[in-house]
């Protein structure tokens, strides 16, 4: 077996990117058949298809970088919660449509900025995936942003639901901009910029839409984190149990 050191930071980066798409995609597929109108089911399905497609690209590459013959499916179906590297935001419950949209918008806006930064990666493959994904995610931002505006400045009921959802989900955005040792090393090597650098631009993006939506940003110092270290909320193990159950029940086979 090859004893060469695994490029751990690169591997971690790819897991983080892949797991975000996988977990959020998994959350979104549950909405098929349950959206407010048929057109929205189709729109949401497109977003989920995009995110899951990106996840496959990130995770396949991760498996190659790790060099232990793990495929995208090995990584998706046979890791436990403590090995997942997604942000806490994406594993939160769908809640009502307001919560679904707020979670989506907060993630989409960060995601678009992050992909923009990663498009300049010194790693050509990362840059390539990021460039392709960004075209799709720019569209996600437009879509979720349009919904935020309509629900925020719609009826009294929709406004109240949006403000409640925002209060609940805003604290999870902090984690997206916290840099750890892995992030610092990746930045030093030019593979990915530091997450902290994205914060101001992201805040501008979000504030502009919130203004249009007559929504106010919650004042909340609580900043839960830990996703990058595999310290997740209680939601993740339920999500994974469902996602992985069939595949794990008959291992070592083709599906």
């Amino acid at each position: 077996m090859n004893a060469a050191a695994v490029d751990r930071s690169r591997f971690e980066f790819l897991l983080r990117a892949g797991d975000n798409g996988l977990i959020l995609g998994q959350r979104l597929v549950v909405l098929i058949g349950h959206a407010p109108i048929l057109e929205e089911e189709l729109g949401m399905a497109n977003v989920a298809l995009d995110l899951l497609g990106h996840a496959r690209m990130w995770l396949s590459y991760a498996g190659e970088v790790e060099g232990a013959n793990r495929t995208e499916d090995d990584l998706a179906y046979f890791r436990g919660a403590s090995e997942f590297r997604n942000a806490l935001l994406v594993e939160q419950d769908n809640g009502d449509f307001a919560a679904t949209i707020v979670r989506q918008f907060l993630f989409d806006t960060w995601h678009a900025r992050a992909l923009g930064a990663w498009s300049a990666s010194s790693d050509e493959r990362i840059a390539g995936i990021a460039q392709k994904a960004k075209r799709e995610v720019d569209y996600h931002v437009t879509r979720s942003g349009d919904w935020v505006a309509r629900l925020g400045d719609g009826t009294d009921e929709s406004h109240a639901r949006m403000q409640t959802a925002l209060a609940q989900l805003w604290p999870y955005t902090g984690e997206l901009f916290i840099a750890d040792d892995v992030d610092r090393e990746l930045a030093a090597r030019g593979i990915a910029g530091s997450p902290e650098e994205l914060r101001d631009a992201w805040l501008g993006d979000v504030a502009a839409v919130f203004a249009r939506a007559t929504l106010s940003i919650p004042e909340d110092a609580w900043t839960p984190s830990g996703g990058k270290r595999g310290l997740h909320s209680e939601h993740l193990s339920y999500l994974l149990a469902e996602m992985q159950s069939l595949r794990r029940s008959v291992p070592g086979t083709r599906w």
Binding site: I37, E39, L42, G43, N46, D146, R150
Partner: peptide, 20 residues
């Protein structure tokens, strides 16, 4: 298709009739 306004009609049209 059904949409509340022109902007969303356009987004929905892209999603439904062109798959972008």
């Amino acid at each position: 298709l059904h949409a509340p306004d022109a902007e969303m009609a356009m987004l929905n049209a892209r999603d439904v009739y062109t798959r972008r």
